[in-house]
Design a protein around this nucleic acid. Structure first.
Lengths: 202, 202
DNA sequence: TTTTATAAAGTGGTCAGACCACCTCTACTT
DNA sequence: AAGTAGAGGTGGTCTGACCACTTTATAAAA
C-alpha cells in the first residue's frame, strides 16, 4: 500500500508531468488554476497549495490577472528561506565569519582566470578609494569577485552572509590585504592567493 | 509603498518570527492552522499555502490529527522535486557541485588539526570498506569531517548540498582519493590537502 | 476608417464554511 | 484495573463566493 499521499503532492507530480509532456519551457504559460482543478479532479485550494510550493522553489512565477508561468531565471528563493532558518538556529558569529571567509577566498581564486585587465583596473579603483570605509570597500570588492565566478549559488550564499554580517560586529581585513590581492591579479600569481588569505586571517 | 506582498508571504515571515520569538526547536509544535489563522488575521487557506511551502522545504512536518511540528531532520522532498523539475539544467547542477567541493575541501583542512588518532583510524575503516558504494563512502567520510570542523553552519550547508547531490548524477572522487587523504592525516601533511583536492577535481 | 472608451471575460488572491479522517484523552462501562 | 466508546482538537479537502487585476472584445466617438 502506498501511504496515501496528500492531494497537493500528487498535483505537484501531475504538473511536472504536464510540463514534460507539453515540452513547456521557461516563460511558457501553465493552465489556469481553475482549469487544472477540473483536469486533475482536485479542489482549487489543493492546486494552489502545490503552486505556492513550486513558486517558493522559484520554479514558477504567478502574475495577478495574467496567469502562472514557468520561471525564466533561477531565483534561489529557496536558498534564501533555508538560509533564514539555518542562520536563525546558528547564530554563532565565528561560524558565519569562517564560512564567509572560505567563500571569499575561493571566489577570489575562481575569478582569477576570468578577470580582464579592465576589471582588474576597476578593482584597483575600488581599493584606492580613500574616502570609503573598509566595510564599504570590502563589500564592493567581493561583490565584484563573487559575480565573476559565474556561480549563482556561491554568489547568493555570499550575499546572505554579507547581509547577516552587517548585523554583527565583523572584523574586516586590513586595508593592505585588498591592495595585495589586486597586485596578485596583476602579476598573474594564482598560487599566492591562498597564502595571502592565510596571512591576513587571524 | 510596499509592493503589496501576498498574504502567504507575510504568513511565512510571521511564522519564522514566531519560531524565533518562542525559541522553538526541532520537534516542537506549532500552533494549529485555525489558531494561526486567527492570530495572524488571515484565512486558513492562506496559512496552509505558507505551511505547504515550508513543508516542501523540509522545515516542518505535519501529522494528520496531531498538528504541525518543526522538523528534526531535513526531508528529501524538496530535493526530489527540484531534481525532477529543473535540475536537468547543467548550470545549476554545476553550481551546486562546485560549492559542495569547496566546502568539503575546507572541511578537510579545518578538521585536520582536531583529528585524534582514533578518529583517523575510524576514517580509515570507512575508506577500507569494500562492500560499500563510493557514494556511501563519500557521505559517511565527509559527514565525519564536516562535524569535526565544529562549525554548525558549515555542516548544515554541506548536508543540504549532499542531499541535493543524491538526486542528481554526481561524479564522486576516485576511490584512491579517500585513501590518500587519510594517509595525509596520518602523516600530518596539512599542506598537501589542498593539492590533493586539485589533483582529483579534474 | 481609425482611435478611444467601455464592458466583459478570464485569471490569480483571499476568505468563510462545511465535511471528512485521524489522533488523543477522558469518562464511562465492564 | 482494564478496556472501550465518545468528544474535542487537528490536519486534509472541497465548494462557492468575492475582490483586484489584465487582456480582449465591443461599441462609441473622432
Amino acid at each position: 500500500m502506498t501511504p496515501k499521499q496528500k492531494v497537493y503532492q500528487e498535483v505537484l507530480h501531475e504538473i511536472r508531468k504536464f510540463i514534460e509532456n507539453h515540452d513547456l519551457e521557461p516563460g511558457d504559460k501553465l493552465p489556469s488554476e481553475r482549469e487544472l482543478s477540473e483536469k486533475l479532479q482536485a479542489g482549487r485550494s489543493s492546486i494552489r497549495e502545490a503552486l505556492r510550493a513550486i513558486e517558493l522553489l522559484g520554479l514558477i512565477e504567478t502574475r495577478h490577472g495574467e496567469g502562472t508561468f514557468l520561471s525564466t531565471y533561477r531565483s534561489y528563493q529557496t536558498v534564501d528561506l533555508l538560509a533564514s532558518f539555518i542562520l536563525q538556529e546558528n547564530k554563532t558569529k565565528n561560524d558565519i565569519i569562517l564560512v564567509k571567509r572560505i567563500i571569499e577566498k575561493e571566489a577570489a581564486k575562481i575569478a582569477f582566470s576570468s578577470l580582464t585587465e579592465k576589471e582588474i583596473a576597476e578593482l584597483d579603483e575600488i581599493v584606492q578609494n580613500q574616502t570609503a570605509e573598509t566595510a564599504q570597500i570590502h563589500r564592493t570588492f567581493f561583490n565584484c569577485l563573487v559575480k565573476k565566478t559565474d556561480n549563482l549559488l556561491l554568489a547568493r550564499i555570499w550575499m546572505l552572509l554579507e547581509e547577516f554580517s552587517n548585523t554583527i560586529q565583523v572584523l574586516n581585513f586590513h586595508n593592505a590585504f585588498y591592495r595585495e590581492l589586486v597586485s596578485l591579479y596583476k602579476a598573474k600569481a594564482y598560487d599566492l592567493i591562498e597564502p595571502l588569505f592565510h596571512k591576513y586571517s587571524n
